[in-house]
Nucleic acid binder design. Structure first.
Lengths: 107, 107
DNA sequence: AACTGACTTGTCAAATTTTGGCAAATATAT
DNA sequence: ATATATTTGCCAAAATTTGACAAGTCAGTT
């Protein structure tokens, strides 16, 4: 991924961090990373590891589900970025996901 | 990715190949790969490289856009697989993509 | 102008993942 | 049993990602 085009997750983290009056150097250690790394995550230059999401949620008093949703959305956008078939692909994928959910319920 | 959960692309390729009465060993060389590799792509065990899509379309007399759409959709499904927030994330991503398209038109 | 504090950028090696090939195994017929 | 089609397992090379550190910029302060 290297750089995400969307970055709703990172923007949210930054917003939450600032609302909580935390500096990068305050938050970073709580996530067991250094300041530059967190900075990159907030700006979408690096992808946060999935297992960090609950920690982000906890230390920033945020909804884990919301953060995870944004984190996933960024990756979806990344997959389809600069493709004119993006919306078509998303509709196909959505149908596929819905089908899978339906199957799961059945069993 | 390693193994895709969806594999609409590979299934389509297999279907097209069989309709065209081609064997793996016929098609594989046209794509400059060996037979096991093509087999894996068809079963979604390997991801086809993006630049192969036009070649698939050409040699199988198929729509390049359709194949590309399925190829993208598989990857979207892969991103959200086994997440109960899949549909939420897809809606967020869709809004994001639509917004980006709107921005593009403006300029 | 130098200093300080917050954040960003660049670079890089280590870790991880992906890729595609080959040999061998398993079907699926004849 | 033989032959042909497909699949599986394994592996090394290639590519990507990861995260750390040093050095940089930028804004406000003295």
């Amino acid at each position: 991924m290297q750089t995400s085009s969307s970055n709703q997750f990172g923007s949210k983290i930054r917003q939450l961090r600032e609302n909580n009056k935390l500096l990068l150097r305050h938050l970073a250690p709580l996530l067991d990373m250094d300041t530059p790394h967190l900075s990159k995550i907030e700006r979408g230059e690096r992808l946060a590891k999935k297992n960090l999401i609950p920690i982000f949620a906890k230390v920033l008093n945020a909804s884990q589900d919301e953060l995870f949703t944004l984190w996933l959305a960024d990756q979806i956008v990344d997959v389809v970025k600069d493709s004119n078939l993006a919306l078509d692909a998303m509709m196909v994928a959505e149908a596929s996901v819905k089908y899978q959910i339906k199957q799961k319920v059945k069993e």
